[in-house]
Design a protein around this nucleic acid. Structure first.
Lengths: 255, 255
DNA sequence: GTCTGTGAATAATTTCACAGCA
DNA sequence: TGCTGTGAAATTATTCACAGAC
């Protein structure tokens, strides 16, 4: 699989930096909460705190969207909710299909956060005939055989893959062939897609691994620091000291 | 590796950039797959393709870990698996608790990707007494009342929150008070934690929203020009050429 | 010749700090 | 006065391009 190119256009889609786009949903959520509490306006400082970012970053982000605030006052909550929703494309209805209705697929089907934000679960699809017809989250599961028809009948352009890793690429290929151009992938595998198709990946174990890295550093800062700064042989000696199981360190060493 | 002192703000995580840490699990997964196929060595080009990144980035990333490759040859797969695992802290056992055993919590409990990477689900915890004692993924669910005891008895330092948003902060506070210092949060809310506690967030709907943004852009540039007049959307040439400027790597995808 | 490791160049992102408007 | 909007500076990340080990 050397074709590589599966990622978004490294350049800004329009004027908006990718990092900013990734934060817009955070702001939107914080704003929605304020809106529900009928808060009329909010300062960059307050909103930033609610979204978990700092205020300079938030103001910079908003500056890419336009000048939607009022100096000396802050931002109008409702207006900003609308502007961000529109910018994210959430003022329209997005039918999505979820493929792979295991535990995770069922969790996704039940997840309220989709429906409340312009996403509509148009269909659930699974390869297991035993599931076909059974309702999950009130939606009957359909069989993979009908995938193409389902996509086309519902005008689906966003697909969610929650299958085992082994099935993901095949499902992806079929989704893309049927017209899907954005894929949210929960399967722990790298998907190959043609130019023009966006893939985002959510990997449960990757996040844990990143936490483990930081956790380990908290546990013993200096020991780890030495290990990497020192030539391989020393590093290896160092860690065979505290590792026992797992057989041993692979014998092959460069140099 | 250049043990030499570049003046780096010692405030930051050791020498390894956060962006690199976030990619190590990707490399590790690709390497594990190669290892299972008994592939002895791999070049940066091949491994990068398997991990979905470009080779210069991969080599740069590895250079932060040390010089684990062999010029003219590539990387020894087993050795690299070991080094990255060690760097990520996966050579030790991490007991984790999952709090909130709904659909998502059950999916996480069943997820094989944890066990295979040094994470051990030490306990499942839920506030619903009806669930208490029932096994999920072979592990009996325990009641929230015992949260502190469970954390302490099992020496848990990593907690996973899969509760509804409303319960997340409270659960988080109790986890932290009981000694947890890393939290993986699936609840759609911003968690407040004291200094020294790491939080990573996985938000299912945020990813979909980012996709919708790009999808909208694909659908028609003119729609976006509705409210705010922007300079014409320069349709930028795609970044088609991705591989090295030298020889094209043979593409696997048949157009 | 091949392929890694890495300085140097470039690009993206964050932060600073303050001008300017309500 | 209070707070936004934004150039400029600082920081971080990516890519280039090539020296050097095999």
């Amino acid at each position: 699989m050397a074709t590589g190119r599966t990622h978004r256009p490294a350049t800004r889609s329009r004027g908006i930096p990718e990092a900013t786009v990734a934060r817009l949903p955070l702001y939107l959520r914080a704003l929605t909460a304020l809106s529900e509490r009928s808060v009329p306006t909010v300062s960059s400082e307050e909103l930033a705190a609610a979204a978990g970012v700092n205020s300079a970053k938030l103001r910079k982000d908003f500056s890419y969207l336009g000048s939607y605030g009022t100096r000396g006052v802050g931002y109008d909550v409702e207006y900003l909710v609308y502007q961000i929703s529109r910018e994210l494309g959430l003022t329209q209805d997005w039918p999505v299909v979820i493929v792979g209705i295991g535990n995770l697929g069922a969790a996704l089907a039940n997840y309220g956060g989709f429906a409340s934000r312009g996403f509509r679960v148009a269909a659930l699809i699974d390869a297991d005939p035993a599931l076909t017809g059974k309702p999950v989250a009130g939606i009957p599961v359909q069989h993979t055989d009908d995938l193409e028809k389902i996509i086309q009948d519902n005008g689906v352009s966003i697909g969610v893959i929650a299958t085992p890793a082994g099935a993901a690429q095949q499902v992806c290929d079929r989704l893309v062939a049927a017209g899907v151009t954005s894929i949210l992938n929960f399967a722990p595998t790298v998907l190959n897609v043609p130019e023009g198709v966006d893939v985002r990946k959510v990997d449960l174990s990757i996040e844990l691994q990143i936490l483990a890295f930081h956790e380990q550093r908290k546990a013993g800062e200096e020991a780890a620091a030495e290990a990497a700064a020192v030539p391989a042989a020393a590093a290896r000696a160092a860690d065979s000291a505290d590792q026992g199981p797992d057989g041993d360190v692979p014998a092959v060493m460069p140099a």
